[in-house]
Amino acid sequence: MKKINFMLMAVAAVCANMTLSAADTCAPIRVDTLPARNQNWLTVFTNQVTLRWYWPAAASSAELKIVGMRETVAENFAPGVSVYQWQLFEGERPKSEEVYDLTLTFRDQLAEPVEVLTAKVAVLAGAFDAAKVDPGESERLWSRVLNNVVIPYDAAWIPETRGAVSAQIEIAKEGGASQTYSFSDTAGYFGWKLQASGWGFGAFDLALDFPGIEDGWQASLNYVPSTMVIRIR
């Protein structure tokens, strides 16, 4: 059984339905050439994404699972169907940020997997509209979270970690559990599910490390109820 990544395509028409003369030109097209490093490959800029794939010769069925922090989508396909139009959210802008893991499993006539395709997609508020920026570390929002969190990571942030070949994020709750999440790439997005996940409210220490390299990043956060009111006398 093979495991590979599959391409997600959000196709926009360029110079469509136009008759061009020799003097006419199209607007420049942005091309991201490094899928292993460029986070634009993981970020969506529209509320609908077209998924395309090729069927292995031995496959007689396919199952698509899309798992996010808030919802899960499952679809089954018969041979001959190679396109799926996935609507990520209603409206023009997302109500919340999200990270989705996609798995497309092809099975033979005995329901045994013959090939598995995977991909990851991030929905970021800043990709659709102006994003709020907290200007300094003294801002309260830097240390407090109310909902599920999308955490970016990139070994290229500082020169000392640019030679990394993998990454990991360790989350430790003060006085509670800890968990390490490992990634085969060095740039991407991690969806930290806090709501209805068993973590509970409290203080957390986060560490972004790159195995084999000493330098990394650390942060401390407090997960508090969204309706909590603090009164000081």
Rank of each mutant, 00 (worst) to 15 (best):
M1N: 08
M7L: 05
A13Q: 12
N17C: 03
M18R: 15
A23F: 15
D24H: 12
P28S: 04
P28I: 04
D32P: 05
R37V: 01
W41P: 00
N47R: 14
N47H: 15
N47F: 11
Y54N: 14
P56F: 08
A58G: 02
A59D: 08
S60W: 03
S61F: 01
L64M: 11
K65Y: 07
I66Q: 04
M69C: 10
T72A: 13
A74F: 10
A74R: 15
N76E: 13
G80K: 11
G80D: 13
V83A: 11
Q87K: 13
L88N: 03
E90M: 09
P94E: 04
S96L: 10
D101A: 10
T103L: 07
F106R: 01
L110V: 11
A111T: 11
V116P: 02
V121Y: 03
A125T: 14
D129F: 08
P135N: 04
S138G: 12
R140S: 07
L146Y: 15
V150K: 02
Y153D: 02
P159E: 06
R162M: 08
R162G: 03
R162H: 05
S166H: 06
S166C: 09
A167K: 05
Q168M: 10
K173S: 00
G176L: 11
A177P: 00
T180W: 02
S184F: 09
W192G: 01
A196W: 15
S197M: 11
G198F: 08
W199L: 03
F201C: 07
A207E: 11
A207Q: 11
D209M: 10
F210K: 01
I213C: 00
I213L: 11
V224I: 09
P225K: 02
S226Y: 10
M228D: 09
I232S: 12
I232V: 12
